[in-house]
Design a protein around this nucleic acid. Structure first.
Lengths: 212, 212
DNA sequence: CTGCTAAGTGTGAATCCGACACTAAGTTAG
DNA sequence: CTAACTTAGTGTCGGATTCACACTTAGCAG
């Protein structure tokens, strides 16, 4: 480790896998690239680190610029540093995952994107760069975090029914669980508090809960 | 995300928290800095990313250069990007933790280090840069990984007794566990295989085990 | 040969996990 | 008005896992 660092510095960027629930299915936000390389291909939103900006702040800023919302959950889950992963120059990508409640999405394509769209995770297009790898790792990280339940609140409105919570859990985990067992698990995790209000739908009203 | 990236690139480095067991206690490898800034202070080993080098490879190379061994376990656990964390220039630090069996240590101070030494984790000196923060986070990450037992093999010789394994577990977790329960847990994790050999010490010989 | 010390095993209580079926309370259609 | 439908919500039992307890075993040392 020489005192003077004579090697060229790589570029550093954040990429964000933004997830939401739409009609019960897990969706991810992709942008269509407006410029070369990979012009016309779909990619994860992201952008370069600015001077004197922290990595977390960079991810948050990029996300706000792309969706005009602040993420309720924004966590780092890995770095991607393969030489040549960006044909322009060396780019180290710091990858984050973010969760959004589906009713707070204002997708706005920015200058680098022709359009921005949600895709269900089982119907993805080809992705630019190594973003397919990044997204696969994001899904793994999300799955293991979701077992603590509380990260899921970010996918739901401020108050929600237990059926909604279970739906989010199943969509993220990728498998179904018994209703009774799920409720028992939530009960002794003590991460939700019941309210006095009910939501009236097509059938028996469901009690609303909120994060504890 | 403009096509041309006009911002200055930050430097990118890896820092490695190398842990081992010495006389039953968890120790971490520190180097004494030979140059400014923080000349004379203790710091985690680490160094700058080279062109066309992956981050994992950088951590492995730096570790080999500092200790002349290959780590049995080398995992990324976080990035540190606070502006000003290095007074020379902007440096993004990609942090790894590594585990070594205590009998394979050949510590060799390199050009940037006056000396390299093991410190027990409850007797640490003041650390340079933000390395105290990095080390704290490393210990948390190590603690949660160690619950799967198998990472601990990296701290032990190729064949070991269950008492050694339990000692490593307790040192990393930071609390004591019941002997009988620990053995039951190891048994149905099915991560070790018993051998036909015993180690003869001061008292009743102990059976040797190896990773399954 | 006796005593010390670390290795290794058994057991019972409490708790958690998973599969089972039923009751409750609204809406809607006839 | 009422009957049928659909989703919300609860009880229970057996098996497995967790945890705290105490005893036996085997080699070494004096």
């Amino acid at each position: 480790m020489p005192f003077t660092y004579e090697y060229p510095h790589p570029a550093v960027a954040t990429d964000i896998a933004v997830f939401t629930l739409r009609r019960g299915a897990l969706n991810v936000l992709l942008i269509e690239r407006a410029a070369e390389p990979f012009r016309g291909a779909w990619a994860l939103p992201g952008g370069f680190l600015q001077p004197d900006e922290e990595l977390d702040a960079c991810a948050q800023r990029e996300l706000r610029e792309e969706t005009s919302v602040d993420a309720d959950l924004l966590v780092h889950f890995g770095n991607f540093s393969a030489p040549g992963r960006d044909p322009r120059e060396r780019v180290i990508s710091v990858a984050y995952l973010a969760l959004l409640a589906s009713d707070e999405l204002r997708i706005a394509a920015d200058t680098d994107a022709a359009q921005a769209r949600w895709f269900p995770i089982d119907g993805l297009p080809e992705l630019a760069f190594d973003h397919a790898t990044i997204l696969r790792r994001a899904l793994e990280a999300l799955g293991s975090r979701a077992r603590q339940i509380s990260p899921l609140f970010a996918l739901l409105p401020p108050r929600f029914t237990l059926s909604q919570l279970q739906g989010a859990y199943e969509a993220v985990i990728g498998e179904e669980v018994e209703k009774r067992n799920f409720r028992k698990m939530v009960a002794n995790l003590e991460c939700v508090r019941e309210t006095d209000d009910f939501v009236h739908g097509a059938h028996r009203p469901a009690r609303l809960y909120e994060p504890a």
